[in-house]
């Protein structure tokens, strides 16, 4: 209450000064806002120019770390873009990092290579509606054995303590050490995993667990044939 009283009294004090002052011209109003806007723009542009390379570097580093995590043997990677159902190699000239907007619109996957430049598998990002919001994840796919070999959640707002076990629960991560993607990944109850294409759901986080299975299946549906085509082309070269 005390604060409100102060406001009212202060306003009363300033009232007479407004009446005494001559009404400023429209030009003065517009120009003062224009000048404020101009300097604001100047500050924003300089901060943007200064921070943008750092932000891009952070983003690239986060992505790189995730790729190396889901493809354990991976030492370097090539970015592939999905265009008209075909995977096209992107030059590593930081072209992919140019704008984050483009990056999100164009579907990209990453082909990983080990120390001897031998192909080890793909790192594939995918997204799916979870319990609260979209879950974005990256998984490692061994195209020779047709199994998923690693899994990492990039973004999620799942319930702390329950749904967030999809990336905090070590037992759930065990599902993705060698998960067969064919014919289809199936979610089963905890402790009932028999075949290597089954994912054990987390007790108390069934919706989040099933969302992960959907994410993997849907993403594999998109990339299965482009990947085969790409690998055939590579073999023929």
């Amino acid at each position: 209450m005390t604060v409100d009283n102060v406001h009212i009294e202060e306003e009363k004090e300033s009232q007479p000064t407004i009446l005494q002052e001559k009404e400023p011209s429209s030009f003065r109003l517009i120009s003062s806002l224009g000048i404020a806007g101009f300097f604001s723009g100047l500050v924003l542009v300089s901060v943007y120019v200064f921070t943008q390379p750092l932000i891009e570097a952070n983003r690239a580093e986060a992505l790189q770390n995730a790729i190396f995590k889901v493809l354990p043997a991976c030492e370097s990677f090539v970015t592939l873009q999905l265009r008209d159902g075909k995977l096209i190699e992107l030059k590593q000239k930081k072209e992919g990092e140019k704008s984050s907007k483009q990056e999100k619109e164009v579907k990209q996957i990453f082909a990983g290579y080990d120390k001897e430049n031998k192909f080890v598998g793909f790192a594939i990002p995918g997204s799916e509606t979870g319990f609260q919001d979209v879950i974005v994840a990256l998984f490692g796919y061994d195209s020779d054995a047709k199994v998923i070999i690693g899994f990492e959640v990039l973004e999620s707002k799942e319930t702390p303590g329950l749904g967030d076990k999809i990336f905090k629960d070590a037992d759930f991560q065990l599902n993705f050490e060698a998960l067969a993607v064919e014919p289809e990944i199936i979610s089963v109850k905890n402790g009932e995993k028999k075949n290597n294409n089954e994912v054990e759901s987390i007790t108390g986080a069934t919706i989040s667990s099933k969302a992960i299975v959907r994410l993997l299946n849907n993403t594999m549906d998109i990339y299965k044939s482009p990947i085969n085509e790409y690998l055939n082309d590579q073999a023929n070269d």
Binding site: L29, S40, L44, V47, T51, Q52
Partner: peptide, 28 residues
Amino acid sequence: VIPKQVRITAYIIIIATFVTAIDFLLAA
């Protein structure tokens, strides 16, 4: 300097500039 009639707009411009700056700086 700021005319009374447009003071709120001017304050918002100033505040928004600093908020955007701190947003970029934190991200970096």
